[in-house]
Amino acid sequence: MIRKLVIIAFFSLGLTQLSIGQGLQNRVNQATGAARSSGGKQMSVSEMRKNRKKIPRDWAPSMVKINYDMVPAFSTVFGAERTGQGFQASIDFDQFFFTAEYGQESTNRGEIFDYSSDGTYFSFGPEVNFLRQNKEGHGIVFGLRYAHANYSDQLRYTRTGDAWGDGNQERLVTAENPDLKANWMEFTLGLTAKVWKDLYMGYTVRYKVLRQVKGVGEFAPYDVAGFGLYEDNTAVRFNYYVGWAIRWREKQQLIPGLPAVK
């Protein structure tokens, strides 16, 4: 029941974010410079692209966004299986971000066995913001990241009816992987919006591929910290971030003489 409520809550947050995103959508043409440079007239896509190229670049960073991942926080409070924390930081370069993430994740699973894993993960990589000309830090972003996790896991269970040894006795089986290292790549698609002063909210959907795990012994891990299930080569994860932007300068007015996008 609690799990369903959490899902409904996320769904509602997603709709709220969508609404903010629709507001942003109205600014996309402004942000890309299309509507302004045409002077309000209709223009072809090729003309719009040419005009976009005329927009000067502003490569100097203007802010760092520090985000807290609400999804593992909800899991920690309401869930029984998964606990953890996740943080993300992004710094802007023109219409791009460099984003790094760090997190900790523990799992406890099993009804007829006792499986636990614990470890940390990090990821980093570039993101491109499709809202090019905006100084507020709104974003519809696509990114590519490299991710790595260090973790360990343990399994304990009682094996019954085993043919080996005395078949009538129960046998305690224990296994562990003390030093697991995992690598994978992530494609991210996200939406972030400034909701109040320098408070930002947004979500990221990430598709994880090319998962590799080293250090596996005779016991196959069940979880991969920060990734998902070991048996899956790909995974999808949803993150909802709440964060604050630390600014040290105003983003350059990209097209002189025109008002900034707000």
Binding site: R109, G110, E111, I112, F113, Y115, L155, Y157, R159, V173, A175, E218, F219, A220, Y222, E231
Partner: peptide, 14 residues
Amino acid sequence: YEPHLRIYYDECEP
């Protein structure tokens, strides 16, 4: 042979 202990699913015995 090479043995491999694995968990198929949360509700199943390894």
